[in-house]
Every structure is written in C-alpha cells, then in structure tokens.
Amino acid sequence: MSENVATLKPLKTWSHLAKNRRRPSEYEIVSTNLLWNMSENTPPEAGQGLAMDEWHHKYRYGSPLTHSDWDGFRDPDSLVYRTYNIIQDGQETYVENLCDEYSSLEHDAGLAPEWLEALEAFYTPARYPLNICMMNAGYGAAFARSSTIVNTWVYQAADSLRHLSRLAYRTAELKKNHPSRRFGDSEREVWEHSPAWQGFRELFEKSLVAYDVGEHFVAFNLVAKVAFDETLVAEFARCARIAGDDLAALISDSHMRDVERSRRWSRALVEYCVEDDPANKDVINGWLEKWVPLAERSVSELLLILPGADATAANARARKFRNDLGLDR
C-alpha cells in the first residue's frame, strides 16, 4: 500500500487548530468545528428535500443575519461542559444552603401578606415563561450555525431549567407554609388570564415562532429574555429586599450570574456578526424595531403588580444593554 498521495506531517493538535501556532485551550479542543450541516452544500445524507431539510434552508441558511465564518465564533467565557458543572454545582450548593438556612429560621412564615400576594401573582407563575426560555434556548441549540454557538445555547437552556427548578422548589415551600393561599394551584390561570401577564405571554409566544435563526436570536436573547430577566430577576430581587424577602433576593442574585453569562455571549455574537458585515447591524436594528415595543409594554404591564417596582428603570437597563452594543434601541 505504498502509493500514498502524500506523506502528511505529524500534528500537535487538531489540524484545524494547528494554524494558530499556539497551544489550543481545552475549550477549543472540545468545542470547535463539530457541525456537519454547515451550509446548503452539506445536505442531509437521508431526507434530502423533505420538510426538515427545507426548514434548514429557509430558516438557517436563508437568514438575513449572515457571517462568512460561523465556525470562527468563540464563547467569551470559553465554557465547556466540565467547567459548567463545576460552576453550577457551586452555585446550587450555595442556593441549597440558603434554602436550608432560611427554612430553619421560618422565613416564609414571616413574610407580609401584601408580599405573599405579589409572590402568588408575579413570582410563581413565572414557571410558564421560564419553560419557554428553555424551549427557546433549545431551538437556538438545534439550529445554530456552529458548534461554538450551539454550546452557548445548550448551557443557557440548562440555566433556564435551573431557574425553573428552583422556582418549583420555592412554589412547594410557599404552599407548605401558606396552605390557605393558592401557591401551586393558580399559576396556569394567572399566566393565561391575568391582564398583567398578557403582554409577556404575547411576547414569549411570538418569540417561540420567530423561526428564522437570526431573528430568533435577536427577538429572544436581545429582547424578550432581557425584558424577562430585568423584570423577573433584577427588579424582583430589588423589590424582594425592600419587602424583607432576602431569600428571594439572594436566589435571584445567583440567577443573575447566569443572565450575565447569556449577555456576554450574546454581545460577542452581535459583535462578531457586525464586524464581519456592517450590514448585519441594520438587520438587527430592523428586528429590534419590531420586537422592542412589545417587550417594553410587557415589562410595564407586569411590573404594575410588583410592589415598589420601577418599570422605567427596568426598560432603561434593557435598552442600555443593547445601546452598549451600538444598537438603536
């Protein structure tokens, strides 16, 4: 078997990383260049021309948000599975200890009736939009254009499940301590019928079906999720402190670290796209024009039922995040 086409040199790392002339990080070794469905030129080996293939053409390859080298994107946190679990196990150990400690101090029994009402109307129903946060991140992962983008979505989906799970835990705890209230029983009704929630319900339902992957990223990660986090995490934590619910505030602070990570990679992706083609900025601004008004209305309507909340400040923070990226609104 000696008719070799060529004799290739030994390697120090994967060939696609060798050109970098430096020792690759663990992140690069395990995260880069993994998709086999990169473009129109790599159709599925089976199912070509069927509905799923068409979906990829229409919503992935056909998106107005473009890049000449999707594989080149890097997560600014260089997060890998192994480190994700180390970080989140640490956070969950901390939050679990908080719950244990506050439970032994009979924290829930001491909450004021007005605040309990707010928790019932504002906090525990959030498991519905949190489930949609996870669904949306799942969509991002399933249809992203590079493995490095897929991974950021996968970890973000897990973060949403984290938040949803802690909320479920707190729902059961509040129900146990306040059996005469409707914790655990009323959330779906509130989500589907309370006027304060209908803006968010509209925003979240519509974000679910923004199937173009570029628009989906903008509508959800730059607008809907930012609105949600400023409302249900940041503003909630601030008001909880005022109401004496330190436990809720501390738990929210911990979730805020996940929120900040989502914003770091979202920011990096916007910058990566705009750097490659300045026209991408107009594309993103176009989508913001469509989505931001609904998001701001949702925040204003929902924060009406949270005692002490400042919707203007929440919306201003959301805008600042986007403005800092050089975006219009």
Partner: peptide, 11 residues
C-alpha cells in the same frame, strides 16, 4: 411543578 408547564397558546 417543573413539568406542569403546558399552556394554551393564544397569540
């Protein structure tokens, strides 16, 4: 509670 998350879409 983590899996009582189905709802009826409206919008």
């Amino acid at each position: 509670y983590t899996r009582m998350t189905n709802w009826t879409p409206k919008f």
